[in-house]
Amino acid sequence: MKFLIFLIFLLFPYLSFAQIPVKEIKNEEVWQGKIFIDGIVAVRNSGKLIIKEGTEVIFKTIDIDDDGIGDSELYVEGEIYVYGTENFPVIFTSDKPVKEPSQWKYVMVNHAKYAYFEHAIFESAFSGLQIHFTKGVVKNCIFRSNVDGFRFSTANIYVCNNIMTKNKHGIRYEERDSKGIIEYNHIFDNEIGIFPVTACYNMVIFQYNAIEKNGYNIKVGYEQKKDLTFKNNYFGMVFERDIKKTIYDKNHDKHLPKVNFKPFLKKNILRSRIKCLENGY
């Protein structure tokens, strides 16, 4: 009996740290209806994933490595096309009835051929969507109740008319070698609206966004060196001194660079109908 108990004790680490199940997509695959992801779905570089309107992609809440972040994820190195519509968006969510951040990991697009997201909802993830080393278009999507709504680095991106709300960071990025335009997005009610962490060089243009009612509308990361420009955005206020208070930069910590936000919009132009560019800039 003692021997049996000792045996179980030796094997317990192995039993409790089972491998995360992985499914690979190497060719073209189309999703519609309800899709359950238990573990990792990896779209390989030869793969192409098309997700049709109204599809619900439900990530099972598992945390095998016990780091407090769900382990289910969609990992794309091929192509991904998400074709939601206004009335029938594609939803990326967890399997829990009560949605909270980090219940699943992310939709990660990394060294991929192309990524297109239209009318998708990302909720209750660690990061709703991450794009790296890829050209990506993200339009008319909603990012809510995630730790990071949208996150990117070294990407060519067009991000237009999206809503980022109730996340810890609406948009978090390390620009590095990125280029792109982020425009007409409504970024509100997040702890931090926009978090430029480090290595940002104003090559990604933020314009015509409504960045308002966040804990900080913009918070500059401690390792960011260069002054940043966020011109032609609406901050929910008309006076410069009020806007300054919502931006955590040199004015709060002399070691940080400055955020230049002038000229700023005095009206929220998102009230009018926005037409994003079809395939990006």
């Binding site: 030796l10 094997l11 680490p13 995360i20 780091d67």
Partner: peptide, 11 residues
């Protein structure tokens, strides 16, 4: 048991 090398998913 000693030789097990478990790899963790990180973010």
């Amino acid at each position: 048991a000693i030789g097990l090398n478990i790899s963790y998913a990180c973010v």
